[in-house]
Amino acid sequence: MIEITDQSIDIQKIIDAAQSPDCGGVSVFIGTVRNFSRGKDILRLEYSAYPAMAIKMIQRIIDEAAEKWDVRKFGVSHRTGVLGIGEVAVVIAVATAHRKEAFQACQYIIDRLKEIVPIWKKEVAVDGETWIDDHA
């Protein structure tokens, strides 16, 4: 399953989407809002997305991953809206038959998500707001 949501991400739901009896491992990445960035104290992040295209691009990334590894099931959720420090911005769960592939596929998916999926974050720091224009 893939979702772009303005509600708190239900982490268990995303993990459940990646459960499969033929899989021995589910690798999960949880991206959270950090309190510092580029030397600034961050108050909150504001995420916006182009949801229809974001879902399409995430599906493409999953397809890419499935060509490289034996991805059986997956769940990807990305938040939009205002997120405070420590809140969950993204959850990726990937199930494969063996653990090594699960780790590799999960890392690939988050790296590619940061490269091509039309989602943006604005950092709101103590001294002002900035649209982030790199995918560090």
């Binding site: 991206g31 995420y47 997305a49 182009y50 295209m53 974001a54 990305h78 911005a89 993204v90 988050i110 998500l113 940061k114 490269e115 091509i116 999926v117 039309p118 989602i119 943006w120 974050k121 649209w131 982030i132 224009d133 790199d134 995918h135």
Partner: peptide
């Protein structure tokens, strides 16, 4: 048509 500034999700 969408104008896509550099993305920064995740």
């Amino acid at each position: 048509v969408a104008i896509i500034p550099p993305v920064s999700g995740g």
